[in-house]
Structure formats: C-alpha cells, structure tokens
Nucleic acid binder design. Structure first.
Lengths: 250, 250
DNA sequence: TTTGTTTTGTTCAAAAATAAACAAACTCAA
DNA sequence: TTGAGTTTGTTTATTTTTGAACAAAACAAA
C-alpha cells in the first residue's frame, strides 16, 4: 500500500461519502493516523479535498460559494465610512449605477435627498429609495430570490440601454496579483455590464476584502477607476495599491 | 460532528425554517448550547445568518424591514373570491402576466406553490412572491413610486419580449357602453401592452366596478377574453354582459 | 423602578486532534 | 550487501475544540 494507492482510495472515499474522519481512513487503509494526516495535507494542498479537523470533506460541500449573498450585517461601520466617501463624489443631476452588493446598499442612506437617477438591479435598494428624492430605474429580468436582485441576459440588455456618469459596485475579492474576483458568475457578469455603461467606476470595498481572492477571477484592476475603502486598511497595502497605479480613497 | 458539518446543517436548517433557537440546534446537532453559540457567532460574522437573542434567523428575513406594502384592499373578501376563481384557471408550467392592480395582488396567495412563471411590473407582487415556488420575471424601467410599479416605454419594450399563456389584469372601470376605462394613462398603456403579449386575458373586476366609467377610455371589451367577478354582482348586470357576448365567471 | 428569568460571554479544565521529533522499516541503486 | 534517501509508526509536546461553571447583561413582568 503506497502513497499513490492510498491517495486514490482517500479521494474516492471522500467523494462518495462527502466527508470522513482520520480514524476511519486509518482503519480502511490499514495504516496509522499519522500517515493519513500526512496524506491529507498533501491532498488538501493540491485541492483534491478540504481538510477539516479530524478528517476531510468534499471541496464542494465545504465552500458553498453561492451562499455568501446578503452580507448586510458584516462590518457596518466600515461600510458606512466608505459610503460617506462615495456619496461625496455624487453631484446633483448624476445618473448612477448601483449593483446589488451589501456595501453599495448602505450608500442609499446618504443619497436620499439628492436629485439624481439611480439605475439598479437590487430590490432592497429600490425598496430603500422608494421614499426618497431619487428617481429610480429598475433593471428588468428574472429575479434571483437568494440575492434579491435581477441578473442575467435580459438584465444586461436593459442596462446596455443606459449610460451613467458613475457606477458604484461592490466586490467579493480583490488582489494586486489576480485583480477582481467574485463568488458567483451572475454578479461578475452584472459588474462587467455596469462598468461598460459608466464613465467612472467606483469600487466600494471594505478593507477586510483587500488582497483576498474568491473562486472566480473576472476582471483586471483596470476595470474600475477609483477604489474606495475604509481607514482600517493596513498602510502598506494601501501604499502597494497606489504604487500599482490605483486611485484609492480612504 | 465537526465544525464544518455543524455549519452546513445550521445554515441549511435556518434557510429552510426561517429561524431557529439555540436549544433546538443543540439537540439537532447532539452538542452543547455553548458550542452552538460559538458556531452562530462565526456564521453571523460571515453573514450566512442573522443572530437573534436565543437563536438565529435567515438574513433575508431580518433585513426585509423595508417591505413593499400594498394598500389595504377595499372589499377584500370579494377580491379573494375572484382570485380563487382566477387561480383555478392557472396550470403548472404556465407563464402569466400580472399587472399592478390591488385585486391582482391578492392572487399571489393562491399561486405561491404553483410551478409557474410570473411576469409583473408590480413591486408588491415581487415582494410577496419572493418566498414562493414561483419564478419571477420583473419588468424593468422607471419606477413609479406612487404605484410601486414600473411603467413606461422601456417597461413596455421589456414586456414585448415575452409571450404568456395568460394575463391577469385589474381595471378601474368597465361598462357595456364605453368599454374599459382607467384613472391613469400609465396603467392603461401597461394593460394594453400586456394584452398584446398574452394568449388569454382575464379581467379581474369586483362587482362594485361593473358599469362604472373613469376618465380615460382606452379599450373595447374585446381586449379581454374572460371577465372574472364576484357573486355579489347584480344578476341583471351579469346577464347583460353575457348577452353582449362576454365570457363571465363568478 | 425592582425582581426574577433567560441568554450570553468568559474562564478554565478536559479531551481531541495535530505537529514535531525520532526511530524503525523499506526502497533502490551501486 | 551496503548505505543514502525516503516513508512510516510511535512517542511526546503543542494547539484546538469542547463543555461546565459562573458572572454579566438583556429582557420581561410586576
């Protein structure tokens, strides 16, 4: 029973069962738990399974990337700080795009009394701005109930009909090395569609997301014009972004 | 049972049930309440659920403080009667248009569990069907805040892209002499656009509106195929409509 | 307000899992 | 066969996770 043989069996078993414990694998492979752990470290490093304490799991079960939708509750004070900066950029008469990110949602409170037009695919944003001075243009198409937003082909065609001064979009991950990344194709696609139709794209991104990567890389840093983040961003990271030519406000 | 397992089960259970208590989760996961609390802290931090005192709830439920509310209906029991009749006409797999009338809104409760597609310009209907089996297609365009609906040129273009089996539309006034009438051009125009794209048009109209006229006449009786009204309609009026060739259900 | 109940966070000790260190066994050429 | 290099198993130390106990905080009812 060599490593190759064990490796095959481990991956196969994990795929079949979804998850398994180190002790079970040791019994199954007639080997010690230490050896199993060493194998698991290698397999996890090459991405064939997800290492958990006490065992391993199928990657697909552990990551559930599609779920990270409504992050309203996370880091609200940072997000409000960012949105205040973003609101300062907006002028009367502007036509702006707002996407369905949780950070972007919090921009609503700062623009309630501005005479501007907002084009958005986010239903919470529409609800929030319903009693405001803002003229709302809602993107049509099939409703994604999980994200409470409209995505897809028809939505993108709809957006293609409008031209905006500015766009405010959220992002799941951003890194100097790989650019922008997202947890879902839908959101990535919508972000691209919005960027195409806007003169100036502002990326709203709280500092916890700087230098993180999500599963789908979808655009280089050049997609946006201005990165707005909070004042808790590490100064060396901020400096690195500025050195890379990014216009960063914080 | 490690953290990854518990996490999956907790998120799944919360999503299914809407909310749950710490003690229930402890029993379900065969672990202590302390552990459940620690798990909930982590899950709430990553935005997968909303922490409440004594348990947790779905994020979307917690953030839906801003709901679209339909005006309190007049004659609710008549309208529900009509909608029950209307719902009987709908079959699995149908694609249906629903407009933004208050009568049509009450149809939602009867179609929650049907596997159909609803195309609508009404925001209260979208909100109501958000947690249902129904696939929703939202009509895009400029939002009419007063009516909580989308009207106008872009909206009509959007609707022109879809073809539906059935359409359920409300009406402000109807008379044998003058046909259909409305209180606003916007709604009249939308009704016409919907009728163009539908195989069969059902007019939902409580009996208090029969033989009334509003300021804008916009279509003859031939616009619709079936008139659904309630059982309080005077029998001579019903007879007159049937004599005039109208298919009437009540 | 005060009182009593429930829920929560913190601290601590026990248990489990892991990593590190080292010895034994095995591989494979020369 | 020898011996360098690798893999494996065992022991030990370290880290992580867990549950219990208890104090603090939040809530509800007088």
């Amino acid at each position: 029973m060599n490593f190759q043989h064990r490796k095959r069996l481990i991956v196969q078993t994990v795929d079949e069962r979804g998850s398994i414990e180190v002790s079970e694998l040791a019994a199954l492979l007639q080997t010690s738990e230490m050896t199993v752990r060493r194998d698991l470290v290698q397999l996890a490093a090459s991405g064939l399974l997800y290492r958990t304490r006490g065992g391993a799991m199928k990657v697909s079960l552990a990551t559930d990337t599609h779920r990270f939708a409504n992050k309203i509750a996370v880091n609200p004070e940072r997000k409000d700080y960012i949105c205040q900066l973003a609101a300062n950029e907006i002028q009367e008469g502007d036509v702006i795009f707002m996407d369905c990110g949780s950070t972007v949602f919090r921009l609503c409170q700062f623009i309630r009394n501005k005479r501007i037009t907002v084009v958005t695919n986010s239903l919470p944003i529409v609800a929030e701005l319903m009693s405001s001075e803002v003229t709302i243009n809602l993107v049509g198409g099939e409703v994604d109930k999980e994200r409470q937003a409209v995505h897809g082909l028809i939505a993108e065609e709809h957006m293609a009909r409008y031209r905006a001064n500015r766009a405010f979009v959220g992002i799941d991950g951003i890194s100097l090395q790989h650019g922008l990344s997202a947890n879902s194709e839908k959101e990535a696609s919508t972000t691209l569609a919005i960027a195409r139709q806007s003169d100036k794209v502002y990326l709203l991104c709280d500092s916890s997301k700087l230098e993180t990567n999500k599963y789908l890389y979808f655009a280089p840093l050049s997609l946006f014009n201005v990165l707005i983040t909070d004042n808790e961003a590490p100064s060396e990271v901020v400096a690195a972004y500025r050195d890379a030519g990014v216009t960063l406000i914080n």
